[in-house]
Design a protein around this nucleic acid. Structure first.
Lengths: 293, 293
DNA sequence: TAAGTTATATGCGAAAATGCTTGTATGCGA
DNA sequence: TCGCATACAAGCATTTTCGCATATAACTTA
């Protein structure tokens, strides 16, 4: 019995995605190819691996066992690729980072510019997402994250401390300052559905007016004067049409970290990127806290 | 970077064998294919994996790392294949056993016959070798071994206790019995280069005359009357032209075991083979010891 | 020094794998 | 109930991979 390793990988992907098209996307092949590889695997194993149903391929118990072993193989592949990435001393090729969308324009854009100037032969790929990408699976080489915790197995470096404050449109800000005891409307994030704690006693009347699940939309609502917003200082300060209001005094917030997998961390490209990143962080420290205000 | 798993396996084989032809044999492909796959792997990794020398492909350090990861993948493959083998409840297909050559003709042949009669749809493959095959790598499904110890991770079942005794050609045996104090010539195995311990006091004069590294040759030499031989009872008894001589009284010897990997052990085919094996062992017990003499 | 052995390299035709296209079934929603 | 989207299946053409035959280089040995 001579198993084809790439057929095992194909079975793994089909078990994960349950449809030929899904597995084919993951493998970057035509879905017909997935179907044929699976048929071939079934015939060499002498076992039926999937039930062909109208809504996809349903894995049998045996297929799940096959997939679990293929998953171990995949882990070894990722281990290898991370090793190679870490050992790579070239300042050429591609380099992938990920960061929350809102950090890009206000903070990261100059870093990308500096890096591209300094290392024109490195093709920088930026994944702007709030999803926590899996650095173990090399979804990115480095991640910039807003979190006190760099993650379990990841190496991390704290770039910046930061604080939050309350922001509002200039009109609303004026009104609040001149009528501090009026009811103040808040725009809050879905996951923190109440008025932030720690509001100043000078502004005793607060209520939630809107809840959003998207920060960009919240900023838009605040720009339109719909309410007061609690955001990191850098974000409020770099968003036009917003100014700080003293309703909520500056409070410490999760720090900004650059994190990476220990295997990949020592690579020349990662080193280079961190240098540029740290230099820029030092320069822009004042945007993130009220200290230097 | 999209690595082809079977290319990694090819690199592993080439690191192991160091020549295209050797790796190609192991993979059962043409050696040209090995060369091409390795080139492809090198180009996708962007790394040179082997130095092409006159006497073969010399792996670089990176190739060794690649191979070590591919080896983990291979381990997972064997784990899977053993699992599938163990879960296989069919009494069809091939089944592989291994045993020392000398056990085959005298002891195992009837078992093979019985098994083939009882399970004509199973194609039995017999690897007659003194090498200890690696059951973890599925080089065989079951092994019949002469050893007190069934092995570290293997499951085992003791089939037979056995004893050794001294044998000689009829002519020599006659002479020894009639002239017990004459010098007795021994034919011994290279790894036990002295006269066996425990010779009877009735035959005080013993010396080594020949050392061999091959048991078949030793039996031939004994048949030709060149000396006395210590062999397991079953072997002396079933070899024509030899008879037992009382120089060395029967002594316990390593037992005969059937061993298998725990994963494969419960498979229907392995169960079936063990049943036939055990039945035959019980019937032929008397050949192996002096008890029933 | 010439023949033989053991390596790798390369060109060509056969075989295999792959992608594309068309056809069919099923479920969802206007 | 009629698209519409999503799934798989199957046939055909293309591309890729593979094996064979041949050539070349290094080393051994008579």
């Amino acid at each position: 019995m001579r198993l084809i390793w790439d057929d095992l990988r194909t079975v793994l992907m089909l078990v994960r995605h349950q449809t030929l098209a899904g597995a084919a996307d993951a493998l970057e092949v035509n879905y017909t190819t997935v179907a044929r590889r699976v048929r071939r695997a079934e015939s060499t194993l002498g076992q039926i691996l999937f039930e062909r149903l109208a809504d996809g391929y349903q894995p049998t118990e045996i297929a799940k066992v096959v997939a679990s072993h293929a998953e171990k193989m995949e882990t070894s592949e990722f281990d290898l690729r991370r090793y190679l990435q870490g050992a790579d001393s070239a300042l050429t090729g591609t380099f992938t980072i990920t960061a929350p969308q809102l950090l890009i324009s206000s903070f990261l854009a100059p870093v990308l510019d500096d890096f591209d100037q300094a290392y024109p032969n490195i093709e920088l790929r930026v994944l702007a997402t709030n999803d926590i990408l899996d650095l173990t699976r090399l979804e990115a080489d480095l991640a910039i994250r807003i979190s006190r915790n760099p993650g379990d197995t990841l190496k991390g470096l704290r770039l910046l401390k930061q604080e939050t404050a309350s922001f509002a449109s200039p009109r609303l800000a004026d009104h609040i300052r001149s009528h501090p005891t009026d009811m103040i409307d808040w725009i809050v994030y879905d996951t923190f559905p109440n008025v932030p704690k720690g509001t100043s006693p000078m502004f005793p009347n607060n209520r939630v007016r809107f809840r959003f699940d998207d920060m960009v939309a919240m900023l838009g609502a605040a720009q339109a004067g719909l309410g007061v917003l609690r955001v990191p200082l850098f974000l409020g300060r770099t968003t036009s049409g917003l100014e700080i209001v003293p309703v909520l005094p500056p409070q410490p917030y999760s720090d900004i970290w650059v994190v990476g997998h220990p295997d990949v961390w020592p690579s020349k490209k990662a080193q280079a990127f961190r240098e540029v990143l740290i230099a820029h962080s030092k320069r822009s420290r004042s945007i993130f806290t009220s200290q230097a205000d």
